[in-house]
Amino acid sequence: MVKLLKCKMLLISILSLLISNSLILTDVVGLEYGVGVNKNDELIWKCKVSNNLELDNLFGSDWDNGGIFNNISKGSMMKWKIYNIETNSSLIKIEVDIWFWIKDLNWGVKDNETQITYLTDPNNYSAGLSFINYKSLVPFWFPMPVGEYMGGLKLNPWYDVDNRVLPTLNVDIKKNGIFPGYPNENLKIIAIYNDQGILNSYKLYTKDNMVILDIAYDFLPFYVIPTIVILVSIFTIGIIIYIIKKNKSSKNQLMPRK
């Protein structure tokens, strides 16, 4: 009887383990990656720090003459507008119009257009993947869920994915690490992404942890705008009521007594 009970318990344990592993496997296999932005979305980034002298020393004097950093400077902004999105079983692609870095926000005619394409399954990339085709050395956008997508990539040792709090891509490249003379000294990058896969914060560091380039996604959360409108409305109504009451009080004081 005791042996039979032990056998039953063993069978139940094995069955539970098999079911648990099956569920985990199903969850991993069933994970689908997609696009966290929509057609006609406008994405704007603002440059908070741009130490041009240090950047010249790091990348050479023409580092801002093209690509994603074209004409960047402190206080300037860059805009993307999504004009097409395509997804299928093998590829995820967005096409964007780009307005490079300006300060007066008179965007005018777009400066460029580009497409960003990813494999639908990050595991299909070969080992040692890097983003040296980007001047920023990291993408400004990833498919979502971004943490899982980045975690599935077999990245070059320069890159380290940290999903403990927010999806973060840490980059550590030594002097001459990409090719001789590039970069001219050690650099570090911390790139943080939001849940839409959009680059939320980009900080480039050199020696002594000095930030020489700081870019932030410029947006107001969806709940902020209605809140601001409500507060302004309440404030305006309060002023109107105060003026009306003050006028009535003044009139009462001026009325002759009988």
Rank of each mutant, 00 (worst) to 15 (best):
K3W: 02
S13F: 09
I14A: 15
L15P: 00
N21V: 04
S22N: 11
L23F: 14
I24G: 00
V29G: 02
L31D: 01
E32R: 14
I44T: 10
C47Q: 06
K48W: 02
L53V: 08
L53I: 07
L55R: 09
L55V: 03
G60Y: 04
S61W: 06
N65M: 14
G66L: 06
G67S: 06
I68A: 06
F69C: 05
N70L: 08
S73H: 10
S73L: 03
W80C: 07
S89P: 09
S90K: 11
I92P: 00
V96L: 11
W101V: 01
V109A: 08
D111M: 08
Q115V: 01
P122W: 03
L129H: 07
K135G: 07
L137S: 02
F142S: 09
E148I: 07
N156W: 01
W158I: 00
K174T: 00
K174C: 02
K175N: 05
G181P: 06
I190K: 11
I192C: 01
Q196R: 15
N209W: 03
N209K: 09
L213R: 02
Y217I: 06
Y217F: 13
F219D: 05
V224D: 03
V229G: 00
I230Q: 03
F235T: 10
T236A: 13
I237D: 02
I241L: 15
Y242N: 11
K245N: 13
S250L: 15
Q253F: 06
M255P: 05
